[in-house]
Write a protein that binds this DNA or RNA. Structure first.
Length: 333
DNA sequence: CGTTCCAA
DNA sequence: TTGGAACGG
């Protein structure tokens, strides 16, 4: 998915404890929903569904994660994607094809009883469609979570909101927000900290990446970081074959970005992509103020509408409303 | 992913 | 009490 800068950013990630995170956080909504939909599945790949067969994985993810956020003093603002730019069309089309193929392979794997393959293909067939967006927004509204509609990329809008000081950091798994200028990015903000990767269980801790520290450490300007992104490939351009983050870093540090592109992709003009990261469409028409959670409304939607257990929803709401607006010990100092 | 269950 | 397995919808 996101721009593959992991290998050069690794040294500038610092573990961060939950105690250091209270405040307003700009959540990359599409990234979060995609994550829920890919991961909250049964071993054969079937997502959580109500009795009518409507997918509910995202609703489960939102309910429990936000309940935990609230209990820890993290006030999320969900930022949704707007209209994709023309630059992204090729990527969108490519992803659609991959999803469709995966959907077929999933069905085939289920038929022949290959559970591991079914799970893998099901994940690859994940799509954050209009229904997922609509139902997520409905639940967030009932929870009193502010929602921001980005004019373009949600990641750009989230970065902008942090840069303006309206939010403390962006929550996303992708590094794209750094290219969009997010001063601080927090990854792996999950409660359990445990993840099963290929049968192995590993502990994943929340980590913080400060853009200024990363640029200083790599001796780069933000424009140069974007240049590396362009070389390895972004949602807006395919990248140069055989160039990863480390090679890209070397090329850019030697000042050979333009020359390398001219050599490998003579017909490609990187200026519009650079422009997209430096001056993306964003809006100041938003509010990060949280509303009051409507416990009855949430129960009506989830329990009556989507067959959630009332007991579990009640429990999630408990941590929610009790701690909402309550000062954490940390914030007194 | 996050919660709950259950064996040790 | 703990942590891996099963469940949730």
């Amino acid at each position: 998915m996101g721009v593959a800068l992991r290998d050069i950013i690794a040294d500038y990630k610092t573990p961060v404890s939950w105690e250091a995170l209270p405040g307003i956080a700009a959540v990359d909504a599409n990234n979060t929903l995609y994550q829920f939909l890919t991961i909250i599945r049964q071993p054969d790949g079937t997502p959580l569904m109500d009795r009518q067969g409507r997918v509910t994985s995202h609703l489960s993810g939102i309910l429990f994660r936000i309940s935990n956020f609230m209990a820890k003093g993290i006030k999320p603002v969900f930022v949704f994607d707007g209209k994709p730019t023309q630059l992204k069309q090729a990527t969108i089309e490519e992803r659609r094809k991959l999803r469709d193929t995966a959907g077929e392979k999933w069905r085939e794997a289920v038929e022949r009883g290959d559970e591991a393959e079914a799970y893998k293909q099901a994940r690859s067939s994940t799509r954050v469609d209009d229904t997922i967006i609509r139902t997520s927004r409905e639940l967030l509204g009932l929870m009193g979570i502010p929602v921001v509609q980005a004019p373009g990329e949600g990641e750009a809008q989230a970065a902008f909101m942090v840069a303006r000081g309206d939010c403390l950091y962006v929550i996303s798994q992708d590094y794209d927000t750094l290219l969009f200028g997010a001063p601080t990015l927090v990854r792996n903000l999950t409660v359990s900290g445990k993840r099963k990767i290929r049968g192995r269980q590993i502990t994943v801790n929340p980590e913080r990446i400060v853009l200024a520290e990363t640029l200083a450490g790599l001796k780069l300007t933000r424009e140069q970081l974007i240049e590396i992104g362009i070389l390895v490939g972004t949602d807006f351009n395919p990248g140069v074959e055989g160039v990863g983050a480390k090679t890209g870093l070397k090329i850019v540090q030697k000042g050979e970005f333009a020359a390398k592109l001219k050599e490998k992709q003579p017909d490609f003009d990187p200026a519009p992509v650079m422009e997209m990261f430096l001056k993306p469409p964003v809006t100041t028409e938003y509010s990060v103020a949280a509303g009051h959670p409507d416990a009855e409304g949430i129960k009506k939607m989830l329990c009556d509408g989507y067959d959630f257990s009332e007991e579990r929803v009640d429990k999630a709401l408990e941590g929610f409303s009790v701690k909402a607006g309550q000062k954490t010990l940390e914030s007194w100092f």
